[in-house]
């Protein structure tokens, strides 16, 4: 067993099991950090795009058009190289300290902007699914804008938006693999390193794909439970 391919997955200094697991941790950490950013920003973008005020609506529409249309990889490069450069340029006026943004942060910003743009689309659909009369009724009862948002809109939007958001989570999980290109040691990057030292690309990339597949399946099972919970009281 020790000389076989599976032996390469042992934990410890002579196997790659612990390295891959550490990579998986970074993949999940990146996805879990980015998801709330995309969710909150996406909701704000949806509200802005529905606004009557052009100064809110136009920038939000431009933002979502750009990040929905650009390849995720080029967005990542622009954030990673461009933002570092911009920060360096601004800092060069005040100090000579050299600052670079980390690959992890670049991943959160780039993937966050992309998921927020797609999430805003999901939220727009969900907000359209709520009868206008509900807001009017709440206004007639004297509720302010904030309570209407928090008590009337958000609970219903969450139910309607959940299927779309579930799908975005699965897309986000897959997109995290792109940060391996800017050398963040995620699952795919560590697999790449393992391949470089063992010369067993077919075996290791198969293992990585199986791991991604398992996370997708587990995510789907959890999301199905969540959807059932949020749809309580609604017969299908």
């Amino acid at each position: 067993m020790d000389d076989s391919l599976l032996g390469l997955l042992r934990f410890g200094p002579d196997g790659w099991g612990d390295e891959l697991l550490a990579g998986l941790r970074i993949t999940l950490l990146l996805a879990l950090t980015t998801a709330p950013v995309g969710l909150v920003l996406g909701f704000c973008l949806a509200l802005m795009r529905r606004s009557d005020n052009a100064r809110l609506r136009v920038p939000a529409t431009i933002f979502t058009t750009i990040f929905k249309g650009l390849p995720e990889l080029i967005t990542l490069f622009i954030v990673y190289y461009g933002l570092s450069m911009a920060i360096r340029w601004v800092l060069s006026f005040v100090t000579s300290v050299h600052i670079e943004i980390s690959a992890f942060l670049a991943g959160v910003i780039a993937l966050g902007a992309v998921s927020a743009s797609f999430a805003s689309e999901v939220f727009m659909g969900a907000l359209n699914g709520i009868n206008r009369g509900q807001v009017e009724a709440a206004e007639a009862l004297g509720l302010g804008r904030w309570p209407i948002l928090r008590k009337i809109l958000i609970p219903q939007v969450m139910r309607l938006a959940l299927p779309g958001l579930s799908n975005l989570w699965l897309v986000l999980l897959k997109d995290t693999a792109l940060v391996s290109v800017i050398a963040l040691p995620d699952l795919l990057r560590r697999t790449f390193i393992a391949v470089g030292s063992t010369k067993e690309p077919f075996f290791f990339f198969t293992v990585a794909i199986v791991i991604y597949f398992i996370i997708s399946l587990v995510s789907m099972a959890i999301l199905a439970l969540l959807e059932a919970r949020f749809s309580r009281g609604y017969a299908r």
Partner: peptide, 17 residues
């Protein structure tokens, strides 16, 4: 359910083996 980049790596590097 898996990243396109991982599929590409499997085909480009894996099949090259």
């Amino acid at each position: 359910g898996t990243p396109l980049l991982a599929q590409l790596f499997l085909i480009y590097y894996g099949l090259g083996q």
